[in-house]
């Protein structure tokens, strides 16, 4: 029993090593005080305090949006936001995570494809015109995205700019929770990006023609031949590959041997 990996503390693999003589600080997790060594992220501080996450923890690397967190500091009226996995716990921090928040998502399947991209967005999410321009969403975003800015781009019909401005969105929902106009910004942005990419960005011609060649079965004979080769024969082909130069110009370089293209 003592030897199982489940019974061993698994902190070795994911533990912050507190520097020698680490100072302990007090943080308030949903109002309750806990003593934790300083330098931990909020996420690791909760685990140190004894919480085992079900909700509110995901990639632990700032990209999945599971651990959006609100906090205040003692004696300060300001409401701060951050990702628990990316924000270092500070003495006197009073925090609560927001593992889920109800958001409006419009079903894209019903949208009229004859409409222009910006009209599609307006049809799906007419509430963007209720934006009061308070900027709380932008101040709330843990990814430093100009949320109000991209909503304004979509309102103005600049779908491309809205899509690009919102690109870093991790859909944590913190902006949604704070919007006085009840806009679900993350879903507006999601629709905007997909509409922009699918309908406005030019399609890749090379991808289309290569996919057609695959569908025609063009490469199957060559791949079948490779399957029959000895390891030595494969090694020889591998070592003899021509490497495309790092600084080759897009669509210009071609290998000397074009037989298997």
């Amino acid at each position: 029993m003592e030897t199982s990996s489940q019974d061993k503390p698994m902190m070795t693999g994911d533990r912050t090593i507190p520097p020698e003589g680490a100072r302990y600080i007090t943080i308030y997790i949903m109002g309750q005080a806990y003593e934790i060594p300083e330098t931990l992220t909020i996420l690791k501080a909760l685990e140190f305090a004894g919480f085992q996450y079900k909700r509110g923890c995901g990639c632990r690397g700032g990209i999945c949006g599971a651990c959006g967190t609100f906090y205040r500091k003692e004696g300060d009226h300001t409401l701060f936001t951050g990702l628990a996995c990316q924000t270092v716990a500070e003495d006197g921090m009073i925090l609560a995570q927001l593992p889920f928040f109800p958001a409006n998502r419009a079903d894209h399947a019903g949208v009229d494809m004859d409409l222009s991209p910006d009209e599609q967005i307006n049809t799906l999410y007419p509430e963007i015109f209720r934006c009061v321009g308070c900027g709380t969403c932008t101040r709330t975003c843990p990814m430093d995205i100009d949320v109000m800015g991209y909503i304004a781009h979509f309102k103005r019909g600049d779908v491309a700019r809205g899509a690009k401005t919102s690109f870093d969105c991790i859909m944590c929902g913190l902006c949604v929770s704070r919007c006085p106009a009840n806009i679900s910004q993350m879903n507006v942005a999601m629709a905007g990006r997909r509409i922009y990419a699918a309908q406005m960005m030019p399609r890749s011609e090379a991808t289309k023609s290569r996919a057609d060649q695959v569908r025609e079965g063009r490469y199957e004979p060559a791949l079948a031949e490779l399957a029959q080769m000895s390891k030595e024969e494969l090694k020889e082909l591998y070592v003899g590959r021509e490497r495309e130069p790092d600084l080759s110009k897009p669509g210009e370089w071609m290998p000397a041997d074009t037989t298997n293209l």
Binding site: S204, A206, T207, R210, A211, V214, Y219, A222, L223, L226, R241, E244, G251, W253, M254, P255, N260, L261
Partner: peptide
């Protein structure tokens, strides 16, 4: 492998 100098073979 969707670019011109490339293919599933490489």
């Amino acid at each position: 492998a969707d670019q011109e100098p490339d293919s599933p073979y490489f």
